[in-house]
């Protein structure tokens, strides 16, 4: 039992400590594609380290909401990391605390406070970013639900630990049309949710064009560090859900031993790395969309998800007949 708890905490720690690395790799790779040398892959750690050593300047107009928001933004993905199969393919201690639908709400809680804090500063750019984040948010929501519907139709469950088994037992399931389409739409969702190109340019410096970044424009010191870190963890968690729950649970620890669990960490990272590579190609190939074209992007994701779901329904219907 203690192992269940420890492993579960380990999952959180993995998410916590490897998420900056993933971001560092991603940024480095993107710059390499642009013929640049690029920052160190440990750059995110440097940034966090520095931010923790800085003082804070806070807007006089802001209230306590501004101050607690970084913690909530930081906790939400850790919380989700307790629920999803990061390292193991069997449920751990906190596994049944929530399912995928609930996890979505937990992540939304972080976003909720981020939006509030953006307005709280009375900064003219914060609310703008907040408003746009919400736009992306509510447009992504139906796509998420369609994904859940598909998952639920196929796996008859929304518990990530149970869902992950469904796609590979038997392995032929992996090649179901619904599965592949689902993956595509989920990638699109990740891009939208985390403000990656083509939805948002995470490295843009123009306030008026920002979506994701302008929300935490006002944060400084450890507040900024927590916000950034929380964002990276959310990204990592989403990738984990993608790769471990929806794609395939390969490389996860199957037994309750320290050895396999420690082995799982590099395997997971390699899996994520592949995803990162893919992402780099996508992000380097596309241009940022105009603001109101985002809805078109997400509706494309929606259509793909619906097709995936219909495929699953018909598949199942056919199987039942």
């Amino acid at each position: 039992m203690s192992k269940y708890i420890l492993f579960n905490i380990l999952q959180v720690l993995v998410v916590m400590f490897f998420s900056p690395l993933i971001m560092g790799i991603l940024n480095r790779l993107k710059e390499i594609v642009q013929s640049k040398h690029g920052p160190s892959i440990f750059q995110p750690y440097y940034d966090l380290y520095k931010l923790f050593h800085k003082d804070q300047v806070i807007s006089q107009d802001s209230s306590w909401i501004f101050r607690i928001t970084p913690f909530i933004v930081f906790i939400a993905p850790m919380f989700v990391a307790l629920l999803i199969p990061v390292l193991t393919d069997y449920p751990l201690f906190w596994a049944f605390m929530d399912d995928m639908v609930g996890a979505g709400f937990v992540l939304a809680l972080g976003g909720f406070f981020a939006v509030l804090s953006a307005v709280d500063t009375a900064n003219p750019y914060g609310p703008m970013g907040a408003s746009r984040t919400r736009m992306v948010g509510f447009l992504a929501e139906p796509v998420f639900l369609i994904v859940f519907f598909t998952v639920s139709f196929v796996a008859n469950s929304t518990i990530p630990y149970i869902v992950q088994q469904r796609w590979v037992t038997p392995v032929s399931n992996f090649f179901e049309p619904s599965h592949l389409l689902l993956l595509i739409s989920f990638v699109m969702l990740i891009l939208a949710e985390k403000g990656r190109i083509p939805v948002d340019n995470p490295s843009g410096h123009f306030e008026l064009a920002m979506i994701e970044e302008s929300k935490d424009l006002e944060y400084s010191g450890y507040g900024a560090a927590l916000m950034k870190w929380g964002g990276w963890m959310k990204f990592f968690v989403l990738i984990i859900i993608f790769s471990n729950v929806l794609l395939a649970p390969w490389g996860l620890a199957t037994d309750l031993s320290w050895g396999s669990i420690l082995l799982a960490i590099p395997l997971i990272l390699i899996k994520v790395l592949f995803f990162i590579l893919f992402l780099v190609l996508v992000e380097s190939s596309l241009a940022k969309l105009r603001l109101f074209r985002i809805s078109e992007f997400l509706s494309a994701a929606f259509v793909i998800a619906v097709v995936a779901m219909l495929a699953s329904i018909f598949y199942q219907h056919g199987a039942n007949l």
């Binding site: 013929s35 640049k36 690029g38 920052p39 750059q43 520095k50 800085k54 424009l217």
Partner: peptide, 23 residues
């Protein structure tokens, strides 16, 4: 500074739009 040639990111230097995060 951040053209491919000079690429200051490689040194860990970044331009930020917000003075709150600036050193």
């Amino acid at each position: 500074l951040n053209s491919p040639l000079y690429n200051m990111h490689r040194l860990g230097f970044f331009i930020t739009p917000s003075p709150r995060k600036a050193d």
